[in-house]
Design a binder for these strands. Structure first.
Lengths: 118, 118
DNA sequence: GCATTATTTTTATGTTTGTCGAATTAGCAG
DNA sequence: CTGCTAATTCGACAAACATAAAAATAATGC
């Protein structure tokens, strides 16, 4: 992740509706939610939601897929992890990065795997 | 961290100068840097820098202390960690939080210690 | 007290951003 | 093709934001 992408991601998250929306999708995992359900849950007009979904999508924080008439949105954990890594890069003057790794496949583990060595 | 504070932090970071500034301070550790040095390094006018320092301070991402005539700014790792935790809360539908822990005292370790020692 | 350096506050301006309602595209069923 | 639902795009307006120059505050040393 470079500065440009980090700024896009941070800018996308720095808004009430979008932050709620992203956190909602984060808890839903790769399964995601259709736009209509999201609009209802957040209590936001469809046109507004569409605007915010676009911002998050453009920032790479969420992805879209179609299921019949519905558009399903889900969080992009890769971008999320990259953003966290960018923010914590070289923290405390070290070469290390104290970033988490949220991987829905492995069940949301932190940076250091407990048993399986890389 | 609640939504209000998270929004303040994200909004503060969602700006080129401030993101650079924060990352600079993150790499400097608790020691921090005086405002003048930061202004020179980032190539921004003192008045602009002051504005951005205020935004970051108000968001709780950095702290200020005086050293003679200089005002020294340093990153607030506690707020940073809280923000990362907020973003990753209940990820993948679990109760867990895959948040990192950046602690300058212990050397910026991730949630799980890097070596075998617990 | 007065000059000097370090930093902040103020004021003004141009740009970006969020919201809402209406119109539009997209897919599906009869 | 017509109707129906799901979601997006468009257009206009108010609000929030970043920037720069100038004035003001704060601490230090003579």
């Amino acid at each position: 992740m470079d500065q440009k992408h980090a700024l896009a991601a941070l800018g996308a998250l720095a808004q009430e509706t979008r932050l709620e929306l992203f956190r909602l999708l984060v808890t839903c995992g790769p399964q995601g939610l259709p736009a209509g359900v999201i609009a209802e849950r957040l209590g936001v007009l469809p046109s507004s939601l569409s605007f915010h979904l676009q911002q998050l999508t453009h920032a790479g924080l969420i992805t879209q897929r179609r299921l019949s008439r519905h558009l399903i949105y889900s969080a992009d954990y890769g971008t999320m992890n990259a953003l966290l890594a960018y923010l914590t890069e070289n923290c405390c003057g070290r070469d290390a990065v104290c970033a988490p790794v949220c991987d829905p496949a492995t069940g949301c583990t932190s940076a250091a795997p407990k048993t399986t060595a890389a």
